[in-house]
Structures are given as structure tokens and as C-alpha cells.
């Protein structure tokens, strides 16, 4: 399997939501919806504080429960990779995938009614380009690449730096990693 991963450095992420903006523009995301979002986590008491920003989205899981839950095959892996996409022409809008996603990363598109989500900008990835969110990040905090390749930027960052994923306990094997 071609194994793509996104690696986000929480040390340099400034929570500016440029990733959200660039995704919405690139993918013509309708008003009121978004495929990625930013979470702020502040811990401690003034003045001993820690604030972390996390740009979150579909984790393009290696073991995607949404793909398994889809009764029509609309939710699928793209081109033998771990990139999860929805073929709208097969999607009935039944929302089984929404219930199966541990990350709340799927949306009902308006007005068509099919299920929309982050595609890692597969229309760009097919040409070897980074997803729009990664390409725009003004803090250079986001990285994208192949985990199969040990010399890729993402593989090296994960080897060098402590990191974590969201909800690893589900067994979904998420592929969005956060550097501490």
C-alpha cells in the first residue's frame, strides 16, 4: 500500500487557521462547512500555562472503520493508498460512515447530500504536490509524504521527534501525527 502521512509540528503551529482557509478555497468547500479545523488546548493556571494548537482532519486511517461501514462502497481507499475518499455517485447519504468515524471528520455536503471529507487534496497528490493546507502553512509546521520511504521528510521527523496520534486506542491506525 502507498502509505501517506501528515506530520504537524505543535511546537511551531500558531493556530492561525490558514490551513482551514486554504482547504476551503482549494476544494470549493461550501459556506458553513470545513474539512479541517483547529483545536486549542490550554492547560495550567496563570502564569504557568501551556497552549497547544492542533490542526485536525480525517486521519486517513490504515484501518478505516468508515470504509468498512459503508454499505455501497462509496467510501474507499484511493488508488491503493491509505487516502480515504467518497465516490459521490455511489454515496446514498446514509451516514453509517459518520457514525463509524472516531474523529468526527465527515460532513453532509449541501445541497447534494453526499458525504464530504478531507481527501488529502488527492487532486494535488496525484501530481506529487502537497495538500493545500500543508502548502500554505506560514509557520512551515505541516509536512506531508510517504511513510514507506524511510528518507522522506515525514519518516525522518517521526524518527527524530516525539509524537502522538489521536485516538490510537480505536485500532484505526491513524496517519496524522503530531510532533510534541
Amino acid at each position: 500500500m502507498t502509505h501517506y502521512a501528515m506530520v504537524i509540528d505543535t511546537r511551531t503551529c500558531i493556530g492561525c487557521t490558514d490551513c482551514v482557509d486554504a482547504c476551503r478555497m482549494e476544494n470549493n468547500v461550501p459556506e458553513g462547512l470545513c474539512y479541517d479545523w483547529v483545536v486549542e488546548v490550554t492547560t495550567g493556571r496563570y502564569p504557568d500555562l501551556k497552549t497547544e494548537f492542533r490542526s485536525e482532519r480525517c486521519n486517513h486511517c490504515s484501518h478505516a472503520t468508515c470504509v468498512e461501514a459503508c454499505p455501497t462502497g462509496a467510501s474507499q481507499y484511493w488508488n491503493g493508498s491509505n487516502i480515504v475518499v467518497v465516490d459521490a455517485t455511489k454515496c446514498t447519504g446514509c451516514k453509517a460512515c459518520i457514525a463509524a468515524c472516531p474523529y468526527d471528520a465527515r460532513l453532509i455536503m449541501q445541497p447534494q447530500g453526499y458525504i464530504g471529507k478531507c481527501t488529502f487534496c488527492v487532486q494535488r497528490v496525484q501530481y506529487g504536490m502537497d495538500p493545500a493546507c500543508v502548502a500554505v502553512c506560514p509557520a512551515h509546521a505541516m509536512h506531508f509524504g510517504l511513510l514507506d520511504d524511510p528518507t522522506s521528510n515525514v519518516s525522518m521527523l517521526l524518527a527524530e521527534r516525539k509524537n502522538y496520534t489521536l485516538h490510537p486506542e480505536t485500532g484505526n491506525q491513524p496517519n496524522v501525527f503530531y510532533l510534541r
Binding site: 475518499v85 465516490d87 459521490a88 447519504g93 445541497p111 447534494q112 447530500g113
Partner: peptide, 27 residues
């Protein structure tokens, strides 16, 4: 989006979308 979502649920029925998704067109 929740108000719009429930409209789609009531009116949409369980048929597939007639058009490809945005990403499919962009490919």
C-alpha cells in the same frame, strides 16, 4: 449546518448522488 442537514435527510432519500464529488471533478 444542522438545520440544512435535516432537510437533506428528509428530502434526499437513499439514492446515490447524481453528480461526482468536487474532488472527483478536480482530478
Amino acid at each position: 449546518s444542522s438545520a440544512v442537514a435535516s432537510t437533506a435527510l428528509l428530502g434526499g432519500g437513499l439514492t446515490a448522488c447524481s453528480e461526482p464529488a468536487e474532488w472527483q471533478k478536480m482530478m
